[in-house]
Simulated assay, not measured.
Amino acid sequence: MADLDPRAENGQTPGGDRTLIVGEALVDIVERPGSATPAEFVGGSPANVALGLARLGRPTAFLAALARDERGERIAAHLRASGVTVLDESWTAPRTSTARAVIGRDGSAHYSFDIEWALPSSVGVQGYSVIHTGSIAAFLEPGSGVVRELLREARAGGALVTFDPNIRQALLPVHSAALALFESTLELSHVVKLSDEDAAWLYPGCSVDEVLDAVLDRGSDLVVVTAGGDGAVLASREQRVTVPAVPVDVVDTIGAGDTFMAALIAQLTDVFAPRGRAGLLALDAEQLAAIGALSARASAITVSREGANPPTAAELAR
């Protein structure tokens, strides 16, 4: 399991940018019950993962599609404050994307989007030992095609590739096309995390075990399905374990899955680094349970406070 050093505040660990996160960054416009004025927070699933990794002390670079407007500059400043390197190639969008999140009385969030997603084809992935993508970035053209080329290049170069579909139905093509994009990305990914809602939308009528089998059959080495307050299941070809959620008073669920993903990547990076795929395949049930438990703890901290606000290593250690 990863050494999440509590001294590694704000991403300030020695070394270069080892992890590259590719995907959308946007501003969440959050409407809460009883509040007349929406609040704005930096968001976007991949941006939240980058933030979470940096706060856990992992050198992290981020490639997005940002505009040189007030919201774009705010996003970059927010990420940099936690130690994320925002790549220069990110400044390509005509306007910074937004997501309107309506919070229910149970803390759940329902989204609508104003987003464009495109990336320059000249970006390289050399020098990164981990690359992660997910959500809108993996499905919305023209950027999603570039994302898959980056994953292909990274995997061929020996990097760990991780993927979280984080399904946003309002922005997806028809189900058959979205499923084809999802499964083509699986073939490039070592580690895949999806929520139970993602699993139900992608594979309607299938049990969690059937979904895990389907994803593993496409070539991934480790698959995680999270289920909010019902915990998570982690599965490899040899092992399958369930970890409980951590009881907590929920403020909202924004960023919960992204925080779980960040903690998962942080731990699996240390598993992958010395042995590559063999390290992932050798994880036993006890190790998987420990990895899942720490990821669940990180997620619980995020849902206990407003917005996508993942913990630092020190907070997680406490």
Results as ranks from 00 to 15, higher is better:
Phe41Asn: 10
Asp258Arg: 00
Ala263Asp: 00
Pro33Lys: 08
Val30Leu: 12
Gly228Phe: 08
Ala137Gly: 13
Ser184Met: 00
Phe113Thr: 04
Glu73Tyr: 01
Glu141Tyr: 03
Leu151Arg: 10
Pro14Ser: 08
Ala308Glu: 10
Leu66Gln: 07
Asp221Gly: 06
Ser207Trp: 05
Ala298Trp: 10
Glu197Ile: 03
Val174Tyr: 04
Arg237Leu: 04
Thr133Arg: 02
Pro38Gly: 08
Ala67Val: 00
Pro33Glu: 09
Ala178Arg: 11
Gly43Met: 09
Pro204Cys: 03
Gly127Leu: 11
Ser236His: 02
Thr162His: 04
Ala285Trp: 09
Val271Ala: 05
Gly134Val: 00
Thr92Gly: 15
Tyr203Trp: 14
Ala99Lys: 05
Trp117Arg: 05
Gly124Arg: 15
Ala36Trp: 05
Gly228Asp: 15
Ala25Pro: 09
Tyr203Thr: 14
Ser195Glu: 02
Gly205Asp: 05
Thr98Glu: 03
Gly205Tyr: 04
Ala266Asn: 02
Val251Lys: 10
Glu210His: 09
Thr185Pro: 01
Leu79Arg: 04
Asp3Cys: 12
Ala138Gln: 08
Val248His: 09
Ala81Pro: 05
Asp106Trp: 13
Val125Ala: 09
Ala81Gly: 10
Ala289Met: 02
Ala159Val: 08
Val215Arg: 06
Gly11Phe: 07
Glu187Leu: 05
Gly219His: 03
Leu4Asp: 00
Leu172Arg: 13
Val223Gln: 13
Gln12Asn: 14
Leu194Trp: 01
Ala278Tyr: 15
Phe139Val: 09
Thr269His: 13
Glu89Gly: 03
Ala81Trp: 03
Val211Ile: 06
Arg32Val: 06
Phe41Cys: 07
Val147Gly: 08
Met1Glu: 03
Gly292Gln: 03
Arg7Asp: 14
Ile136Asp: 07
Asp3Gly: 13
Ala61Gln: 01
Ser304Phe: 13
Val225Ile: 15
Ser121Pro: 09
Leu4Cys: 00
Ser129Tyr: 08
Ser207Val: 12
Glu238Leu: 11
Val208Phe: 06
Asn166Cys: 07
Leu281His: 11
Ala298Lys: 11
Gly145Leu: 05
Trp201Asp: 15
Gly255Tyr: 02
Tyr128Glu: 07
Ala77Asn: 14
Ala159Cys: 07
Arg275Cys: 15
Pro46Thr: 01
Asp270Ile: 11
Phe260Ile: 08
Gly83Phe: 10
Thr269Asn: 11
Thr226Glu: 01
Leu181Val: 05
Asp3Ala: 14
Val86Ser: 09
Pro247Gln: 03
Ser35Pro: 04
Val241Leu: 05
Ala54Arg: 05
Asp69Ala: 03
Pro6Ala: 03
Pro244Met: 00
Gly307Asp: 12
Asp249Pro: 08
Ile29Phe: 03
Ala36Leu: 11
Thr302Met: 08
Arg105Gln: 15
Phe163Asp: 05
Trp201Ser: 14
Thr60Asn: 03
Arg240Thr: 13
Glu40His: 14
Arg80Val: 08
Val86Glu: 06
Trp117Lys: 06
Gly134Leu: 01
Val208Ala: 12
Pro120Ser: 08
Glu315Met: 11
Gln12Gly: 09
